[in-house]
Design a binder for these strands. Structure first.
Lengths: 218, 218
DNA sequence: GCAGTACCGTACGGTACGGTACGCCTCCGT
DNA sequence: ACGGAGGCGTACCGTACCGTACGGTACTGC
């Protein structure tokens, strides 16, 4: 394993280049649909057929296969990013609720077939160097949610509701309590039944555990 | 995504068939070395060249490419499985130490280049059905460690040191506290510096947090 | 010595896939 | 009306790789 490039932390990359046109967005949606359906080795022919466009157009628009994959990852990321809500943590109930929202939405994303398929592709690519999809996925997934949660944690600390030294460390604990073994099991093909109710309960449990570890006794 | 097959829980598969001969073990070690070096798309030619054997022998011994991968996963698993130590949790210090050992060895395994490479291959395969490497990896990784830790947790509960309802749930929390975001970041190509000292500290922190959540006040 | 076996090295067939070229259609501006 | 641009469908090329076949070699039992 060659020394992997470090991932740009803290900074969600947010649309570094031109946004795709409507037609190209349709193509990218077709790519995502193909990925989710799985099974296929994800050939350019399949994309062209599915999107009803010619391969030549694919290569004109996205350069090559990696460009198409990169554009797809960015496209999916642009849709997942919710609006960055204002951080106004005043009391314990608001803090808990905010963290539960983050936990639940993160679980929903991570367990979605789209995320699983995309992460699988990115992980497969991470093995053989060239064009780090993995970096993009990390920046828009793990690090993006970290960048959004940490201000909340710091606001909670400022309000005397939480106690921790390093926001990063606190967030990583939060991340572990929320995700546990879910993502690796899904990536490896295990079928975990997880409906909206289970996600809500999991989020509540994770936040309760996190507050038990980092909460300040009023 | 087709309905993924459920993974056989609780039961570590432990050497379902004949053990490979010495020569075959050498081949499997060559496979692991190739995987760790990465970069290559992992061709059968490369394996034959690296192992100084003919492709014909590869096919005679392992059937096909998937058979070779499966044998490699099993081979690695057979080396990782430490002897199942006896469960004798009597006091809080022993419990803490035992859990820290599990956490540290798990972190060491998960962060090893071999594990990363193997998980990448298995995850890539999990996408396209056929021959679930993912199931084998899960059975020998996540579920094997779970099967080994849960008796410890139950012994701790029997000794009045821990309080929980479901051992599985408690273990999953433990798993999350130990692993956090490490595995997904490594799989996606992020370089996390993690030497033996950091692993020891991480293990101690995770166990301290776990005991804070599930420990009984003496 | 000699058949038999196991295996290495290599060459080969078949196929799948990335990437390119070309014909034709549709739409748009003038 | 008409020329051009953009784009779809398809045919095509080169290459990589899985799986097999074949020649050559070392070793074993008789």
């Amino acid at each position: 394993m060659q020394p992997a490039p470090a991932i740009s932390r803290d900074a969600p990359p947010e649309a570094p280049s031109d946004a795709p046109s409507a037609r190209q967005q349709a193509v990218l949606d077709a790519v995502l649909a193909l990925m989710v359906e799985g099974g296929d080795p994800f050939t350019m022919d399949a994309v062209a057929r599915r999107a009803s466009c010619s391969k030549e157009s694919l290569y004109k628009w996205f350069g090559d296969r990696d460009g198409l994959l990169t554009a797809t990852v960015r496209w999916q990321a642009s849709r997942v990013h919710a609006a960055r809500e204002a951080v106004d943590v005043l009391d314990a109930a608001t803090l808990r609720e905010t963290l539960q929202d983050f936990a639940a939405s993160w679980l929903a994303v991570v367990t979605s077939p789209t995320s699983v398929a995309l992460n699988r592709i990115a992980i497969g690519h991470a093995g053989s160097g060239k064009s780090n999809l993995g970096g993009i996925v990390l920046a828009n997934g793990r690090f993006a949610i970290g960048a959004r949660v940490k201000p909340v944690l710091e606001a909670g600390r400022a309000a005397g509701l939480l106690a921790f030294d390093d926001p990063e460390t606190a967030f990583r604990t939060f991340f572990g309590l929320v995700g546990r073994d879910i993502q690796i099991r899904l990536l490896l093909g295990d079928a975990i039944p997880l409906d909206a109710g289970a996600i809500r309960r999991d989020a509540a449990r994770a936040v309760a555990q996190f507050l038990a570890l980092y909460g300040q006794p009023a």
